[in-house]
Write a protein that binds this DNA or RNA. Structure first.
Length: 904
RNA sequence: GGGAGCAUAGCUCAGUUGGUUCAGAGCACCUGCCUUACAAGCAGGGGGUCACAGGUUCGAAUCCUGUUGCUCCCACCA
C-alpha cells in the first residue's frame, strides 16, 4: 500500500470519531477506578462555535484524554445553557422577522416558539465539538432547563427563601428598556473609551426672585423627575441658598435646595439636580433627605404622565431629551452645551442604554452564604490557576453585593412565588404547595374564619393566587451545574428539611463530586465560578471542583478581541477543514499559557499542521524499511540514549501537567518528537544507502516501541493522527485503540549517558558547521582525531558520530594534528582533517578570543572562591559547584592554550 | 476613585527558594541545500544594558524603594 507523502486529516478524522463512539470509549459510569471529572462550561443555545469555545474545549479534552490514558475513570459531562436573556432576545428578533410581536403572544405561545428554537439550534455547538475531537460522554448531555434541572433550580430558590437568604425588595436596579428587564451589575457593560455626550447647563430659578442657579446635567429628560437641588454643605458660593426653594424648569415644581456631601464642588457648576427615581446616587440622597420619588419613565423607556408635559408622554427618553433641549434653548434657560465624555452603561445583550430604575425585584443576600466560598479559595481547597486570580477573587468576595436574580422575561425558570389578592407572597415548589401555605395563613388568621369556607374550594383559590411573572437570572440556574448534572437535587438525595444535598444518597454524585477541574475564562469568575463554589458549600458543604483553570481570551494579532463587527474571528470549522482538527488544536495551545490571552494567528495552525505532517512522515520512513533478523550493535547508542531521553521528558511533562502548564507540556513534546526523535534518533538508526535500506529486527522493534510511546504522549493533543498511526504502525484490532491505551511511565534516566549524548551532538554540529563554513560537501568522508582522557566514553557513540558527521575514521591521538580544523567540546580537543587548509591567522584569532573569554570566566569564579564571605555565607553546594566550574574551565583553558601553541 | 498584576531577543513568552556554563524557548530573520521520510522539509547562523533610577547583598533578571509605561478587576461623578 502506498502511503501518501502528506498527512490528510479529512480521510481519517470522522472515521475515528465514529469508531470511538461505537466503542463507547467516552462513556463513563461509576466503578472501582478513581474518577477524573470535568463538567463543561455549558455553551449558550444561541450561538455557534467560536474561537473561545475552541480554546476552552481543547484544553478540557487534553486533560480528560490524559486522565483516561492514565487509567482514571474519565468523565466529561457536556451540556448547554438556556441563557435566558440572550436566547429571549434572539427569539424575539426571529419572531419580529416573521412579523410577529412578542406582545401579541401569550406566555405559553412564546415559550413554544422558544422551545422550537432550542430544538433547532440548541445542539449546534455540541455537534461542532465532535469535529474538534471532544471526548465527552454523549449519554450525559444536560440542559439547564431539563425537567430535573428545573426542579433543582426551583428547590434551591424555595430553600434559600426559607433560610432567609432570598428577599424581595424595592431597589434601584439596572433596567434594559429594550428587553424590558432588570439586569445584574455584571450584565451592564461600559465602553472602554467612554461615549461622547453633552453636558447641558440649565437655569433653575429661585422662587420669588429673579435669581437662578445653573445646574449641569447629561440627562435633561429627567428634569421633570427632579425633587430637589443639592449643593455641597461647604460650598461658600451656595451656602446662602440652602433651604430656599427653586422651581424646576418647564414645570415650575417648587423643590428645596439641600446640602449633601455627595455633591462635588469642582464638578460641573457644583449644583446637582436630584432625581431619586432615575439615579442610584440621587435615590440615596433622596432617602437621606426624605425626598419624594417621581418616576417619569415607562418600562419601555418612554415617558409617562408623571412628567407633566403632555407632548412628551409616550415618547422615547432620547427623543424627549432633544425636545427638552430645544425648549430650554427657546426659553433661554440653556446657558451652555458642553461636549463631554461619559462612561455610560449599556446592556450586554441588547446594547441599549441602561436606565437606573426603581422596582420590585428578588435578591439573594450574598454576604453570609459566600463566606465559606471565600475561605475555600484562600485556603487553596479550591485552587485557581494561575494563582494571581486569588487576589481578584478575594476582592470581589469581600465586597460582594446582593444579587438581583429576577428578570422580566419569559424564557427561563419562572420564579416559584405566588401572590394573593392582598399581595402576600407564598414561595413554594408548586402551585399546590403555595396554595397550602395560603390556606394555612388564612386559617391562622382569626378574622378570616368566615372566609375559610369561601376559599375552601380550590377553585376559588385558583383565581386568587397568581404566580410571579418573572424568571430567574441564568446564572441562578447554572450555579448548580456541577451538582445538578448528577441529579443531586432529586427527591432522594435532597433533604428539604435540612436544606442539604445528601451525597451518600446519590451514587453518581457520590462518585463524581467534587469534580476534578473546571476550565473557563476569567471573565466569568464571578458570574459563574464563584457562585458555583458558593452553591457547593451551601448544599454539600463541599467544593464543586478542586482546580479552576482560567484561560485567556482569544484575540487577534493586534490584541483586539475577536468580534463579529470587526470580522477578525476565523470560522473554527473552516480552520479545521484547512488544517485538520489536530493542527488547529495545536495552534490553539501553542501560545496560550494559563491566564494569558491567546494572540491567535493562523500561522499557529499551520505550524500544528506541519507538526502532524512531520509525525506522518516519520511513520512513512519507519514503514519503508525492510527488516532483517538479528541485531545491529551500531544502533545500541541511539537506543540507550533515546530510552533515557524519553524517560527524562516523561518526567518533565508530568511536572508541566501538575502545574497545568499545558502549552509548556506541548512545547516539550514538540521538541522531543521533532528534534530528539526525528532529527537525531531516526537519523542515527536510519539505514544507509549501501545497506539497501534494511534495518535489524532488534532496532526496529525498539523503534516501534518508542514511536508508540511518543504517540501516547501526544495523543491528548493530537487525538486523530495518533490513533491513525497507532493502527498503521502495528497490526491491531479495532478495539485496541490508543484512546484507551495505557500511558507510558518514565524510568530513571541515565544522566551520564544523556550528558555524553549532548557532547556527541555538539561534536556533530561542530563538524557540520566547519563543513558549512569551508564549503565542504556534507557527504565527503573526513578523518577525525581526538585528544581526550575519556576515550572509553566515546566508544559507544563511535558509529553514531561517524554516520551523522560523515566521517571516514575516528582516531584517538596524543599529540596535535597539524593543519587540521580544531575545536573543543568540554575539555576534549578534536581535529578535523579537511582538504581546505587552515587559515592560521584566523584560527589564532578565534582561539585567542575563546581564551580571553574563559580567562575572564576563571577570574570571576576565582574572585568568588577567594572571597571569604562568599565561602562562608553561600550554601556548601553552591561553593562546591563553583569549585567544579573552576576545574572544568581550567582544563578547557589548558586545552585551548595548547591548541594555540601548536599553531605557532 | 479603590484593588491587583505586568515590563526579559523583532513578536509571544519561560526563567521555581537570589549563585555568570543562566540570559533561554517557539515563531520571525539570515546563509547554504529539491541529500531516495517530510521544501508543510534539511543543515548551519546572527540577535537582548533583563523598562529606568537608587538600595540591600560577597553576588540581583530574581529581593526592597521610587519613577515611567501598559493591562485587568471593582465602583461609577451629575
Amino acid at each position: 500500500m502506498e502511503i501518501p507523502k502528506r498527512y490528510d486529516p479529512k480521510a481519517i478524522e470522522d472515521k475515528w470519531y465514529a469508531q470511538w463512539l461505537k466503542q463507547k470509549f467516552f462513556r463513563s459510569t461509576p466503578d472501582h477506578r478513581k474518577p477524573y471529572t470535568i463538567v463543561i462550561p455549558p455553551p449558550n443555545i444561541t450561538g455557534v462555535l467560536h474561537m473561545g469555545h475552541m480554546l476552552n474545549n481543547t484544553i478540557q479534552d487534553v486533560l480528560i484524554r490524559k486522565a483516561r490514558l492514565q487509567g482514571y475513570n474519565a468523565c466529561w459531562v457536556p451540556g448547554t445553557d438556556h441563557a435566558s436573556i440572550a436566547t429571549e432576545a434572539k427569539v424575539v428578533a426571529m419572531l419580529r422577522e416573521k412579523g410577529i410581536k412578542k406582545s401579541d403572544l401569550s406566555r405559553e405561545e412564546f415559550m413554544n416558539h422558544a422551545w422550537e428554537w432550542k430544538r433547532k439550534y440548541g445542539g449546534i455547538i455540541l455537534e461542532q465539538l465532535k469535529k474538534l475531537g471532544a471526548s465527552v460522554d454523549w449519554e450525559r448531555v444536560h440542559f439547564t432547563m431539563d425537567d430535573g434541572y428545573c426542579k433543582a433550580v426551583i428547590r434551591v430558590f424555595v430553600d434559600l427563601y426559607r433560610k432567609g437568604h432570598i428577599y424581595r425588595g424595592l431597589r434601584m436596579i439596572n433596567w434594559d428598556c429594550e428587553a424590558q428587564t432588570a439586569l445584574s451589575n455584571e450584565e451592564v457593560v461600559y465602553a472602554e473609551e467612554g461615549e461622547k455626550s453633552f453636558l447641558y447647563h440649565v437655569k433653575y430659578r429661585l422662587r420669588d426672585t429673579e435669581d437662578y442657579l445653573i445646574i449641569a446635567t447629561q440627562r435633561p429628560e429627567t428634569i421633570m423627575g427632579d425633587t430637589a437641588v443639592a449643593v455641597n454643605p461647604h460650598d461658600e458660593r451656595y451656602s446662602h441658598l440652602i433651604g430656599k426653594t427653586v422651581l424646576v424648569p418647564m414645570i415650575n415644581r417648587p423643590v428645596p435646595v439641600i446640602a449633601d456631601n455627595y455633591v462635588e464642588k469642582e464638578f460641573g457648576t457644583g449644583c446637582l439636580k436630584v432625581t431619586p427615581a432615575h439615579d442610584q446616587n440621587d435615590y440615596e440622597i433622596g432617602l437621606r433627605h426624605n425626598l419624594p420619588v417621581i418616576d417619569t419613565l415607562n418600562p419601555d423607556g418612554t415617558l409617562n404622565e408623571k412628567c407633566e408635559i403632555a407632548e412628551y408622554i409616550g415618547k422615547d427618553r432620547f427623543e424627549v431629551r432633544q425636545l427638552v433641549v430645544e425648549r430650554l434653548r427657546a426659553e433661554n434657560l440653556l446657558v451652555k452645551e458642553e461636549e463631554f465624555i461619559t462612561r455610560i452603561g449599556r446592556s450586554e445583550r441588547t446594547n441599549s442604554v441602561v436606565e437606573p430604575r426603581l422596582s420590585m425585584q428578588w435578591f439573594i443576600r450574598m454576604k453570609e452564604i459566600s463566606q465559606r466560598a471565600l475561605q475555600a479559595v484562600e485556603m487553596d481547597e479550591v485552587r485557581l490557576h494561575p494563582e494571581k486570580f486569588k487576589n481578584t477573587y478575594r476582592h470581589w468576595m469581600e465586597n460582594v453585593r446582593d444579587w438581583c436574580i429576577s428578570r422580566q422575561l419569559w424564557w427561563g425558570h419562572r420564579i416559584p412565588a405566588w401572590y394573593d389578592e392582598q399581595g402576600n407572597v407564598y414561595v413554594a415548589e408548586t402551585y399546590d404547595e403555595a396554595l397550602q401555605l395560603f390556606k394555612e395563613k388564612v386559617h391562622g388568621s382569626q378574622s378570616a374564619v368566615l372566609s375559610i369556607k369561601k376559599l375552601s374550594t380550590e377553585h376559588a383559590a385558583l383565581n386568587t393566587l397568581k404566580q410571579d411573572e418573572d424568571v430567574l437570572d441564568t446564572w441562578a440556574s447554572s450555579w448548580l451545574w456541577p451538582i445538578a448534572v448528577f441529579d443531586g437535587f432529586n427527591d432522594k438525595s435532597f433533604d428539604k428539611r435540612k436544606g442539604k444535598v445528601i451525597k451518600a444518597a446519590n451514587a453518581e454524585l457520590n462518585y463524581y463530586y467534587p469534580t476534578t477541574i473546571l476550565v473557563t475564562a476569567p471573565e466569568i469568575l464571578f458570574f459563574w465560578v464563584a457562585r458555583m463554589i458558593i452553591a457547593g458549600y451551601e448544599y454539600l458543604d463541599e467544593k464543586p471542583f478542586s482546580h479552576v483553570y482560567l484561560h485567556g481570551i482569544v484575540r487577534d494579532k493586534q490584541r483586539r478581541k475577536m468580534s463579529k463587527s470587526l470580522g477578525n474571528s476565523p470560522e473554527p470549522l473552516e480552520l479545521i477543514e484547512k488544517y485538520g482538527a489536530d493542527g488547529v488544536r495545536i495552534g490553539m495551545l501553542f501560545s496560550s499559557p494559563a491566564g494569558n490571552d491567546l494572540l491567535f494567528d493562523e500561522k499557529l495552525c499551520e505550524q500544528g499542521r506541519n507538526f502532524c505532517n512531520k509525525i506522518w512522515n516519520a511513520m512513512r520512513l519507519v514503514k519503508s524499511w525492510k527488516i532483517q533478523e538479528g541485531k545491529n550493535d551500531a544502533n545500541q547508542a541511539a537506543i540507550l540514549w533515546f530510552e533515557s531521553r524519553l524517560s527524562q521528558v516523561i518526567r518533565q511533562l508530568e511536572n508541566s501537567y501538575a502545574d497545568y502548564r499545558i502549552s509548556e507540556a506541548l512545547l516539550i513534546l514538540y521538541n522531543l518528537i521533532w528534534d530528539d526523535f526525528c532529527s537525531w534518533y531516526l537519523e542515527m538508526i536510519k539505514p544507509q544507502r549501501q545497506e539497501t535500506r534494511s534495518l535489524d529486527l532488534g532496532t526496529y522493534e525498539k523503534t516501534i516501541e518508542f514511536f508508540g510511546k511518543l504517540l501516547q504522549l501526544a495523543h491528548p493533543f493530537l487525538p486523530f493522527i495518533t490513533e491513525e498511526i497507532w493502527h498503521l504502525l502495528k497490526e491491531r484490532s479495532e478495539k485496541d485503540c490508543i484512546t484507551v491505551s495505557r500511558y507510558p511511565e518514565g524510568k530513571t534516566p541515565d544522566e551520564g549517558l544523556l550528558k555524553k549524548a549532548e557532547a556527541v551532538k555538539e561534536i556533530i554540529t561542530r563538524i557540520r558547521d566547519i563543513r558549512g563554513q569551508a564549503n565542504i560537501n556534507p557527504n565527503e568522508p573526513l578523518p577525525l582525531y581526538v585528544l581526550s582522557n575519556d576515550r572509553n566514553g566515546y566508544e559507544l557513540f563511535r558509529q553514531t558520530i561517524m554516520k551523522l558527521a560523515s566521517l571516514k575514521s575516528i582516531e584517538f591521538v596524543t599529540a596535535e594534528i597539524k593543519g587540521a580544523k580544531t575545536f573543543l567540546v568540554g575539555a576534549d580537543t578534536f581535529f578535523l582533517q579537511t582538504p581546505v587548509s587552515v587559515n592560521v591567522e584566523e584560527e589564532r584569532k578565534r582561539l585567542a578570543k575563546e581564551i580571553d573569554y574563559i580567562k575572564g570566566f576563571i577570574r570571576s569564579v576565582n574572585a568568588k572562591l577567594n572571597n571569604e564571605r562568599f565561602v562562608k555565607s553561600a550554601p556548601p553546594a553552591v561553593v562546591e559547584k563553583e569549585k567544579q566550574k573552576l576545574l572544568d574551565s581550567e582544563a578547557k583553558l589548558k586545552a585551548l592554550e595548547e591548541s594555540l601553541t601548536r599553531l605557532n
